[in-house]
C-alpha cells in the first residue's frame, strides 16, 4: 500500500527545461508511469518519443487520466503551475521548484484549503515508493530499497543520507516523503505521520527536521496522542547561529522554539528516539525495530 504514490500513480510532469527534462528521464528510467508532459507550445510532440506533450494541464489530464503532478517550472511561475494543477483536479501535486516567494505560497495554501488536492512542497525532493517504482520528484532511485520504514523530511540530500544509512542496516523504505524547506508548505510532518500511522506497510518512521518554525513541535504533539509506531528523529542545525538563513527559506532561528535543541526536546518528550548525531539514524532505527 505505502502512502501518497504507488502502482496507481499516473504522473504528469510540468516544466521540461534543463532540470525538468533531466529528472523526467531519471523518473522514466526508474520505472515510474509517466503519462503526460506539460510544456506550452510542444503539443503533438513526445518526450523521449513516448510521453505526449500538452500545452495545458487540463487537456493533459483529460487525454491521459493523469492523477499526480510534479512541477519543475521556474520559481516566478510556480504559483501559477500549482493552481493550474489543482484546477485540473489532480489528486496529488508535488512542487519541486526552489525559491518560490513566500507570499505566493501563502496564497496557494489559502486557495487549496477547501479543494481536494494534496500539495507537497514547494522546494522539496518529492515522494518515492520503492516497492511500486513510483518516483515523483528527484530522490535518486538507485539509493532506495523496498521495505517498511517510512521517511519524512524537510531536507533533500539529508534524506538521501538517512536512506543510505537505513539501507546499510538492511532496512528498506515503504515511502520517502520530502515535505520541503520553505516556511509555508503543503503537506506537513503531521500529515505525513497520520498517513504512515494508517499504512499497513509502514512499521516505523524516520523524521528529519531542522531549525526554524514549530512544525517539529506540532509533530511531537501529534505523535504523543496518535502515533503508536516507533519514530526515530534527527534535527539538523544544532550548530547553526541565530538569525541567519541556512539555505532553506524556513531554516532560520528567530526565537527559542526554532532551536534544534527545543525541537529535539519536544520530540524526546513525546517518546521519539532522537539521535545526537545525524550519522546515527540507521543504527538507531536498527536497534528500535530489531
Amino acid at each position: 500500500m505505502a502512502i501518497l504514490v504507488g502502482p496507481e500513480t499516473r504522473l504528469l510532469i510540468q516544466g521540461l527545461g534543463r532540470d525538468g527534462s533531466f529528472q523526467a528521464s531519471r523518473t522514466r528510467e526508474y520505472g515510474t508511469n509517466m503519462v503526460a508532459a506539460v510544456h506550452p507550445g510542444r503539443d503533438g510532440q513526445k518526450f523521449e518519443d513516448e510521453v505526449p506533450y500538452f500545452s495545458t494541464v487540463a487537456k493533459a489530464v483529460e487525454d491521459t487520466g493523469a492523477n499526480t503532478g510534479v512541477i519543475f517550472v521556474p520559481a516566478p511561475f510556480a504559483m501559477d503551475a500549482i493552481i493550474e494543477q489543482v484546477d485540473a483536479g489532480l489528486e496529488l501535486v508535488v512542487c519541486i521548484t526552489e525559491g518560490v516567494p513566500v507570499l505566493d505560497m501563502v496564497k496557494v495554501m489559502a486557495y487549496i484549503k477547501d479543494r481536494p488536492t494534496r500539495l507537497i512542497g514547494s522546494n522539496c525532493p518529492g515522494v518515492l515508493t520503492p516497492a511500486s517504482k513510483a518516483k515523483v520528484g528527484i530522490v535518486p532511485g538507485n539509493i532506495v530499497r523496498p521495505g517498511n520504514i517510512g521517511v519524512v523530511s524537510r531536507s533533500g540530500t539529508l534524506t538521501y543520507e538517512a536512506i543510505a544509512q537505513l539501507v546499510q542496516y538492511g532496512l528498506g523504505q515503504s515511502t520517502c516523503v520530502g515535505i520541503g524547506g520553505d516556511p509555508v508548505h503543503g503537506t506537513t510532518f503531521t500529515d505525513a505521520l497520520e498517513l504512515f500511522q494508517a499504512d499497513d506497510e509502514t512499521e516505523a518512521i524516520v523524521l528529519i527536521g531542522e531549525i526554524g518554525g514549530v512544525r517539529e513541535q506540532l509533530a511531537a504533539e501529534y505523535i504523543k496522542e496518535n502515533v503508536t509506531k516507533p519514530v526515530v528523529a534527527a534535527i539538523a542545525g544544532q550548530s547553526a547561529p541565530a538569525g541567519k538563513r541556512m539555505g532553506h527559506a524556513g531554516a532560520i532561528i528567530t526565537g527559542r522554539a526554532a532551536l534544534a535543541s527545543e525541537k529535539s526536546r519536544a520530540l524526546s518528550e513525546a517518546g521519539v528516539h532522537v539521535v545526537d548525531s545525524p550519522t546515527h539514524i540507521g543504527a538507531r532505527m536498527k536497534e528500535v525495530v530489531g
Partner: peptide
C-alpha cells in the same frame, strides 16, 4: 556540501567530534 539540510548536518558533525 550539497543541500541545505545535509550542510547543517555536516556542520553538526564537526561539533560532535569537538571541533566547530
Amino acid at each position: 556540501v550539497n543541500g541545505a539540510g545535509l550542510a547543517m548536518a555536516t556542520m553538526d558533525i564537526t561539533k560532535t567530534i569537538g571541533a566547530s
